[in-house]
Amino acid sequence: MDTNKNILQDTFGRNHTYLRISLTELCNLRCTYCMPAEGIQLSPKSHIMSYDEVYEIAKTFVDNGVTKIRLTGGEPLVRRDIDVILKKLASLPVELSMTSNAVIIDRFIEILKSCNIKNINVSLDSLNAEKFKTITRRNDFDKVYGNIMLLIKEGFNVKLNAVLIKGFNDNEIIDFIGLTKELPISVRFIEFMPFDGNKWDKAKMVSYAKIMEIVHSNFNEKQVIRIQDAPNDTSKNYTIKDYKGSFAIISSVTNPFCDSCNRIRLTANGRLKNCLFSSSESDLLTPLREGKSIEPLIQKAIQTKFKVRGGMDTLEKLEKPDLHNQNRSMITIGG
């Protein structure tokens, strides 16, 4: 292996400058598409990265070219040492952001500001309190919605992530877009994706094409404006004329964005996943604890990344449970 090369560049020429770090497998919600109904087998506490280990691994990535880090979970804010982690990572020359379910985020407004975290993605799959309770198995809609309004008031850039499931919340697409009329937010519709234990079925998926069909049945052609996507963007972005916010579609299943992918994921137990759909992982935590360099392992993991969706390059392959069930449940990967 040529160690003089950029260790974050894969065999397809993609440079991986965006690291998503899961801080915990724990969560205060139980979303059906994320966590199996029976729960999960948690990693032993001793197998979870400490705040120093999170920092050391993150620093290695930043030293090699990572410019953006997003903290995920589970719910990252349930970690007792989250304030220490935020302060340590904020010392790195990197854009720091977070994905949260916003249940308790009101307690962390000041620390988020002090660490220069401006971009917050919030998972919200329904604007209906009963549906919210059904999908999260918790009764926290009012708290979450109130905290979304608080984040906007406090000046954060807020994106709402909604996983669409046919027959459940696909009738709320226009309601979600309606939020963007007066609120400077981005609502992002995410195609239902297969992970271990979430009972994925293609028939439950609401495709990019279907979403746009619904949009165009409610707004005329001149009202729906295509926005220029950012480099390496996972979403196709739109706004409605004269609306303050925008909406987007993340079509990981029907229109994957793999050609421009710059993302890699670090699980809470210190394993590197070179793709969200990949069933293989590289243990970075054990060699780090043994005092070994993790750079060769990072390079090897990047070099073995498939061109498309962890090797599942067709919908037919995605529909085979023996392929996607080898992956983790979403909660142990990191949102």
Rank of each mutant, 00 (worst) to 15 (best):
residue 1 M to H: 12
residue 2 D to T: 08
residue 4 N to R: 15
residue 6 N to W: 02
residue 6 N to K: 09
residue 8 L to S: 07
residue 10 D to M: 07
residue 14 R to S: 06
residue 15 N to R: 15
residue 17 T to R: 11
residue 19 L to V: 11
residue 22 S to I: 10
residue 22 S to F: 09
residue 26 L to N: 15
residue 27 C to F: 12
residue 27 C to R: 09
residue 29 L to P: 05
residue 36 P to M: 14
residue 39 G to V: 12
residue 40 I to P: 08
residue 42 L to G: 01
residue 44 P to Y: 06
residue 45 K to I: 12
residue 52 D to T: 11
residue 52 D to M: 09
residue 56 E to V: 02
residue 59 K to P: 00
residue 68 K to I: 03
residue 69 I to D: 01
residue 71 L to F: 07
residue 72 T to F: 08
residue 75 E to K: 08
residue 75 E to S: 09
residue 76 P to C: 06
residue 79 R to C: 12
residue 80 R to W: 04
residue 80 R to L: 14
residue 80 R to S: 15
residue 85 I to R: 03
residue 87 K to Q: 15
residue 88 K to D: 12
residue 91 S to K: 11
residue 94 V to P: 03
residue 99 T to V: 13
residue 100 S to F: 08
residue 102 A to Y: 02
residue 102 A to N: 02
residue 104 I to F: 12
residue 106 D to R: 11
residue 107 R to A: 05
residue 108 F to D: 01
residue 108 F to P: 00
residue 111 I to Q: 08
residue 120 I to N: 03
residue 122 V to L: 02
residue 123 S to L: 02
residue 127 L to F: 07
residue 131 K to W: 00
residue 131 K to F: 03
residue 132 F to V: 03
residue 133 K to M: 07
residue 134 T to A: 14
residue 136 T to R: 10
residue 141 F to Y: 15
residue 146 G to A: 03
residue 147 N to D: 04
residue 150 L to N: 11
residue 154 E to G: 04
residue 154 E to H: 03
residue 162 A to D: 00
residue 165 I to N: 00
residue 166 K to E: 00
residue 168 F to P: 00
residue 168 F to N: 01
residue 173 I to R: 10
residue 173 I to G: 12
residue 174 I to G: 06
residue 174 I to Y: 05
residue 177 I to Y: 10
residue 179 L to S: 08
residue 183 L to K: 15
residue 186 S to I: 13
residue 189 F to M: 09
residue 190 I to F: 00
residue 190 I to V: 10
residue 193 M to W: 04
residue 195 F to K: 00
residue 199 K to F: 04
residue 202 K to T: 04
residue 203 A to I: 05
residue 203 A to R: 14
residue 204 K to F: 13
residue 205 M to W: 01
residue 206 V to R: 00
residue 206 V to F: 01
residue 208 Y to S: 09
residue 209 A to Q: 14
residue 209 A to I: 08
residue 211 I to S: 01
residue 213 E to F: 07
residue 214 I to G: 12
residue 217 S to P: 00
residue 221 E to I: 11
residue 225 I to R: 12
residue 226 R to D: 08
residue 227 I to V: 15
residue 234 T to F: 03
residue 235 S to L: 04
residue 237 N to W: 05
residue 243 Y to N: 13
residue 245 G to C: 11
residue 249 I to V: 15
residue 257 F to H: 09
residue 260 S to M: 09
residue 262 N to K: 10
residue 262 N to R: 08
residue 266 L to C: 03
residue 267 T to P: 06
residue 268 A to W: 10
residue 269 N to R: 05
residue 269 N to D: 15
residue 271 R to G: 01
residue 277 F to N: 02
residue 283 D to E: 10
residue 286 T to P: 04
residue 286 T to Q: 10
residue 287 P to G: 04
residue 288 L to T: 04
residue 291 G to I: 09
residue 295 E to A: 13
residue 296 P to S: 07
residue 300 K to G: 05
residue 303 Q to E: 15
residue 308 V to M: 09
residue 309 R to K: 11
residue 311 G to C: 10
residue 313 D to E: 13
residue 315 L to G: 00
residue 316 E to A: 14
residue 316 E to V: 08
residue 316 E to L: 07
residue 317 K to C: 01
residue 324 H to N: 01
residue 324 H to W: 15
residue 325 N to G: 03
residue 325 N to H: 14
residue 326 Q to M: 12
residue 328 R to I: 01
residue 328 R to V: 02
residue 329 S to E: 11
residue 330 M to P: 00
residue 334 G to C: 03
residue 335 G to Y: 06
